[in-house]
Every structure is written in structure tokens, then in C-alpha cells.
Nucleic acid binder design. Sequence first.
DNA 1: GGTGAAAACCCACAACT
DNA 2: AGTTGTGGGTTTTCACC
Lengths: 157, 157
Amino acid sequence: MEEIDRRIVTLLATDGRMSFTDLAKETGLSVSAVHQRVRRLEKRGVIRGYAALVDYDEIGLPLTAFVSIKPIDPSAPDDAPERLSHLTAIEACHSVAGDESYILKVRVASPLALEELLQQIRASANVSTRTTVVLSTPYDYRSPVIEKEPEADAAEG
Amino acid sequence: MEEIDRRIVTLLATDGRMSFTDLAKETGLSVSAVHQRVRRLEKRGVIRGYAALVDYDEIGLPLTAFVSIKPIDPSAPDDAPERLSHLTAIEACHSVAGDESYILKVRVASPLALEELLQQIRASANVSTRTTVVLSTPYDYRSPVIEKEPEADAAEG
DNA sequence: GGTGAAAACCCACAACT
DNA sequence: AGTTGTGGGTTTTCACC
């Protein structure tokens, strides 16, 4: 990705509501040129969307945990992510290398809610769970510093 | 938090660039009322900010990992988060219960970059590391479903 | 907290280089 | 890909309820 696009993505990753006018000032381009680039970055999937970052304490979900899961029956087809996606307390699901198959990040209201969630996870995906409770979060959702050479160029459109 | 604020936060968590005009339509309030509520939610810290969600493959950081760290000298003061915050590859830092003290989420360009990062983490915070590499991410950054009763009311402003 | 309205500002598109 | 120009929509503030 080239310099100006990198700058646009960095700015929007830091302030997702920055106006095109301000992006234009920051990049030295015209408003329409920036507009065009942002739409292209969205279309290419470099920008996947925009989100307000919320304080989970304030919205009544103060307990965060990482839940590592392992299938009870390793020979069964592994469709844990789909089986778990209806559980809205699960913020993220990562397939990982190592002893366990997935790491889930979950947000709940209380220890009791966590207990109930773990039961639902085990029942829904036929897995065992290992839970690591988050005590505090010094920082989170930091914006990336974008590399100069992300990858070799792909085939032309 | 009350019904309309919950709705506003949910909508902005899902689409961080939604206009005040659209938020007004969705909530049945006037544009100015929605505007006022959003500003209040920002000021109260319920909304911490706005971010573009980027595709880390596309920006040249295709390797994600969780790095659990443990102090080499448990009697030394624990200031790992501050000591590590200059490493921009670290997206998040959570203090956790359990055998290790923190879980870091990191984004790097390559296995070699991960190796170098781990050396920097160990050197900067005087810790040992245990790394779990992410193979794929079925989902991530899902918006919260906000509870009706987050907490008892705080003291008046 | 809510409303409507005015002014300032921003977006989206067109025409062109 | 970039620029400028413009009509129309959005944001922000203000006076009032």
C-alpha cells in the first residue's frame, strides 16, 4: 500500500469519524480525491467497517475473559465457530496453533453469567473449556502502524 | 443505561459513521436530541472513540499472536504495560488471573518479525513469554449486545 | 431533555485534465 | 487518479419549551 493510502487508513483507524475535509487537509489531496480513495479502500476490504469503541464497564459487561476450547471428540467435524456464533457474549473467535483449537474473547455481566456462558459454549460446540479471567486492561484496540510493503502486488483488477 | 441510549450505542458500535440524521430516524428523536445524547455518551466515556476496522492481512500485518508474559523476577515492581507500550505491534494488553500476569495481542508482518518482537518484549519488561499463534479468525470485533441494567446509578454530577 | 430552525460545514457527483 | 465547482444533505448551535 502506498504512502497516502497508509496515511488515510492510519487516520481513520485512530478517528473513525474524521471528516473527508480533514482527511484532505492531512493528506494534501482534494476532498474528492480522498473520498475516492476511502471508497476504494472500503471496497478492497482494507477498511472493513467503522465502529464506536465502547466502555464495557459502562454498558454492564464488566467481566472479560479468554476461553480456550478443545473438542471432546477430535474426530468430529470442527464447526465450533458457527455453532458458537449465536452467543453474543463472544466478541472474538480465533483459531490457534497449540494444545487447544480456539481462543474466544467473551464479555459478560458477572461471574454467574460467565458460568452460564461456559455451559452454553460446552453444550453448543461439544468442547472442554479453559478460562482466563481478565483483571484489568491497560490498553486495547490500539491502532496499527502500517507497514510500507505489506505484500507483493496482486494480479491486476 | 436507558433504552434510547442503549439503542444509540448499539447502532454506533455497529456503524461508527452513522449520521445523526439516521440515528434520529432509528430512535424517533430529533436530530438535535440525538446529537446531544451522543455528545453526553462520549463525555461520560460510554463511547470511548471511533475506529475504522482494518484488514490486517491487507496492511501487511498478517500474523496475529497472543503472547502471555510472566516476570522473571516476581519481586520487582510490575510495570510491564508501560514498559511495553512503545511496541506498536502490541494491539492490546490485559492483566489476567492465572499462572501468567498479562496477555498481549500482537500483530506482525512475519515469523521473523514475531521473533524480533518477542526478544524486545522480554528485554523491555524482563519477562518470559509463551506465544500462541493465530491461524485464522472466524470473527472478531463483534458489537456488544447491551444489557438493560448495567449498574446501580452513580452519584450525581 | 426535548424541539425546530438557521448558519456553517461537509458530501457526493459531474465535467474535465 | 487528480482537480474544481455546485446542489443538497448533515452538523452544530441557539432560543425556547
